[in-house]
């Protein structure tokens, strides 16, 4: 029942402007390279099949589901994880998430914030439809949606002031 390559390869990932050399199965999802090899655990495993969004990272500025992206596909690209979203936990999305007290368990929030950051990068003044399109695929089991909605408005506001 082997469906994946069994070959190991030496490769280097560039994550948050730092190089991480590693020897891995190039078919392994980027998620596990980030978590178990680069040891950046802010990016979360939720479903493994691109259905929950907890593993969302940015590759060259685009939000990507790292659980279904082979690590080979990320080589030579610039990967940003939640740890690299800002140096001081003060990206407008992070500020807004704190001000609105969004997280409960917090587990899905890296994916929520990385998606929201990508949304605001593309659409600094997002319409309701754009917000829904970006945010609806990211599942929160604690049910923080009411606050995520408020926090996105707040992040737009913070962006405007900046």
């Amino acid at each position: 029942m082997h469906t994946k390559s069994q070959t190991m390869a030496s490769l280097t990932l560039r994550i948050n402007n730092k190089d991480y050399p590693m020897e891995v199965d190039p078919q392994m999802p980027l998620l596990w390279a980030i978590r178990d090899f680069a040891l950046l655990t802010g990016t979360k495993f939720g479903c493994g099949i691109s259905q929950c969004g907890a593993c969302t990272v940015h590759i060259d500025g685009e939000s990507v589901r790292s659980c279904v992206t082979p690590v080979s596909g990320a080589v030579g690209k610039s990967i940003t994880t939640i740890e690299g979203l800002s140096a001081d936990n003060d990206h407008p999305v992070q500020q807004a998430w704190q001000e609105e007290q969004v997280p409960q368990c917090g587990y899905c929030q890296s994916g929520q914030m990385m998606t929201a950051a990508a949304l605001l990068e593309k659409h600094p003044q997002p319409s309701e439809e754009q917000v829904n399109a970006y945010m609806s695929p990211i599942i929160c089991r604690c049910g923080t949606y009411v606050r995520i909605k408020k926090a996105i408005d707040k992040a737009v506001e913070i962006n405007q002031k900046a």
Partner: peptide, 12 residues
């Protein structure tokens, strides 16, 4: 616990 849950620092 919120700040640790907005920058990936919180440990699960």
């Amino acid at each position: 616990d919120v700040p640790a849950k907005t920058n990936g620092a919180a440990i699960y």
